[in-house]
Design a protein around this nucleic acid. Structure first.
Lengths: 145, 145
DNA sequence: TGTGAAACAGCTCGGGT
DNA sequence: ACCCGAGCTGTTTCACA
């Protein structure tokens, strides 16, 4: 399904999505056209979902992050999900098993910013908030293979 | 600090990191060299941390994701953090306030894979696991401005 | 910071192994 | 599947506003 060369390409592109084909080719021991074709196929198959820029939220003024577990009140599940999707400060949200129905990541300018957002949810769901103190593992690839 | 043009560039690059300078330039109404210079500065200032490929874990065989809250046993904090960093299936981990010291995202091949990994932690920390059923909000940018 | 032109590098597409 | 080479497209550099 995915050979050694594909895996190497994914690793290289994860580290630097703008790496030129020529350099990619050199590192995996192929020619540029071959690499070009492989990338096309990887995108087509959905292995590569997109090429994105990794922006540092702190440099945008979001110096605080919080992880919030959200338990919608009875009958409010869909309403809460819609609300979550519309709050732009929520940059990630998973719907999970268990009492906590949603687990969301919030980007915040300061602690009062958190207060304001939670106030807007308080009448539709219960929340448990954890403030992020450090990020020991930042977005990385799982083992390929 | 960040003007309107910079914000537009970040939005465009987040959607497609491999977009050619020429096209970026056209969309923000500048010339290619100007855009090139702006990108150089954004990277230098650390606003753009990296250009990365967004890989679909499901296409790599990781059809299951879990969010695990981890509470190290007394005196095991550092040991547990080291362990977390060394488990490659943990692709994200935040150190947070509250009883749950760490919140980690795990990429898994199947449910027995989860069992195996949690077994390796069980004697050093308590864990609470939530299986991801859906992802209503996938990694996106907070408001720029 | 910005622009435009020119030199340079990278990409794509054909044909061939 | 991959490689090579030609032609084209995109990028970078530089003089200048």
């Amino acid at each position: 399904m995915l050979d050694e060369t594909d895996r190497a390409l994914l690793t290289l592109l994860t580290a630097n999505a703008r790496m030129p084909l020529k350099e990619l080719a050199g590192r995996v021991g192929l020619s540029s056209p071959s690499v070009s074709e492989r990338l096309r196929r990887l995108e087509e198959r959905g292995v590569i979902r997109a090429f994105t820029a990794d922006i540092d939220p702190a440099r945008l003024g979001y110096t605080l992050q919080a992880i919030v577990r959200i338990r919608p009140l009875p009958g409010r599940l869909h309403l809460v999900q819609k609300l979550i999707e519309e709050i732009p400060e929520i940059t990630e949200c998973d719907k999970v098993t268990g009492d906590d129905c949603f687990i969301a990541r919030l980007m915040l300018r300061d602690i009062s910013h958190l207060d304001r957002i939670l106030d807007g949810i308080a009448d539709k769901a219960e929340t448990s908030t954890s403030i992020v103190k450090a990020q020991p593992v930042l977005r990385r690839l799982p083992p390929l293979g």
